[in-house]
Amino acid sequence: MSQVKLLIAGDFLPMPCNYDLFSKGDTKTLFGDRLCSLFASADCRVCNLEGCFTDSDSPIEKTGPNIRAPTSTIKAVKNLGIDYATLGNTHSMDYGKQGYLDTCKTLSDNGIGYFGWGDSASEIKSYQELSINGFKITLYNVTERFDNAPGDDYPGVNLYDEYRVCRELNELKKRCDYLIVFYHGGIEGTRYNSEIMRRRFHRMADNGADIVISQHTHAIGEEEYCNGAYFLYGQGNFCFHFRNDVTPLLGEGLVLEADFTKDGFTVKPHRVLRTERGCVYDEAQDLSGFYERSKKHSELLAGDKAAKAEFERNFGNDAKNWLLQFLLTFRGIDPVVAEKRKVLSPEELRDYLLSLYPRQYLNAILTFLRNEEFNEIGQQILSDLLRKTE
């Protein structure tokens, strides 16, 4: 029987701790024999390239880290057999136009295709059409907005606009056997998907997507089967050593195997574990947490109120990781807070800051974040202020 085996890896980029191994192309030390064999067995291999390949020292101005890898480190990515990279993500535009151009050239020179971004807003390459063993498979990449938007004459990524994205998926499905969507978004550090993400995945499936995968959260989430489609909410990292401390979330990830035949497709998640300088195949394949969350997610969708409450409570607990950063940002420059930050633990500082926000102020902030009108006004005001400080 004719079939296609596709392997999909999560967030992937060389980091200073393993630049030397990537530059040598040392996939055995980075990934181990078992993982290398798995990749060698596939007909096609795709990863999310979480950053850019450039030797530039000119990052863009943004909140959060600017991430890149030297162009020489592409060697191990090539040796692992990666065929295509998605570039519609958080960090692909961290080094501006030069980083964009360098990444395009580095990948092209090494025979690696890419999609999810383009030269300008009107020239985005959002998808890649494959023809393998008689099957037509289309890969589509879209991302939420970060510091990555394209301009009229400036490169950027394929941003999520529901009407346009669903229309494009509907048209793409008409000319392929299988359609896979790589969605870059969600809340970093959460193992539980949000209602917004669920709605978006279902709408994309309604318009032809067979498989929808979310990346960016750096955590393994849940899976869902829906009317013949498959959703993976949170793939976790593949090899992305941005942080030195290895939390339980950062210590694992999934490589998704998708096997396509004329009768349909099957999926199989393979758990990988982070090592000091790379990642390896988890011989125990302990996916108990993944399947337990997926079961609870199914119960939520079936209308189980207790499951819904538990799921949303766990989502809220994970999201609390962002609370301190939010409070510090909203508070602005405060000499007293600056002094307390020197002597208080993060938890003590968080509790102190919360004491400065009466309930009505927390409610006002929630309104600004939740309401479309205030959200749009806030973006406009802040954009104008930033332009005046240039």
Rank of each mutant, 00 (worst) to 15 (best):
N363R: 08
F290H: 00
G378D: 03
N170P: 04
G378Q: 01
Q3S: 13
A205W: 00
W117N: 15
D94L: 06
A69G: 10
F146P: 02
V246G: 03
C44S: 05
D334E: 07
Y291W: 11
G289P: 04
H91W: 01
N18C: 13
Y192W: 14
A149T: 15
P150H: 10
D384P: 04
G264R: 09
S194Y: 14
D152S: 10
F265M: 03
Y357A: 00
H297V: 07
L35G: 08
K174D: 02
R191E: 04
V46R: 07
R350I: 02
L232A: 14
I377V: 07
L287K: 05
E390F: 08
S126L: 11
M204Q: 02
H91T: 06
K388D: 14
L130M: 09
K296S: 07
G96N: 01
G251V: 14
R293S: 14
P14C: 15
V267G: 08
L362D: 01
R191M: 03
R350T: 00
D109M: 10
K78M: 04
G96Q: 08
S131C: 13
D57H: 01
D384H: 09
I137E: 14
A319D: 00
L179C: 08
A284R: 13
T138W: 11
A149P: 12
G113S: 15
K320Y: 01
W322S: 05
D83N: 11
Y357E: 00
T329I: 09
L80P: 00
V4K: 11
Y114M: 15
E312N: 10
L323Y: 01
Y361G: 00
N314C: 09
V46I: 14
P59I: 05
I74V: 07
D286V: 09
M15S: 11
C104F: 13
L328S: 08
R45D: 12
Y352F: 13
L13E: 10
E144W: 14
A302F: 10
G332N: 15
E171Y: 14
Y95E: 04
A284T: 11
L30V: 13
L30G: 13
I365W: 09
C44F: 15
L169A: 12
K296P: 02
V343G: 06
G81P: 03
I381R: 01
E144L: 10
T90R: 11
Y100V: 05
P248S: 05
E162A: 15
D384Q: 14
F201E: 09
L179Y: 00
L287T: 01
I211D: 13
Y291Q: 03
Q380R: 01
D55W: 08
C176I: 11
L35A: 05
L179G: 06
C17G: 02
D304M: 06
A229F: 06
R200N: 15
C226R: 08
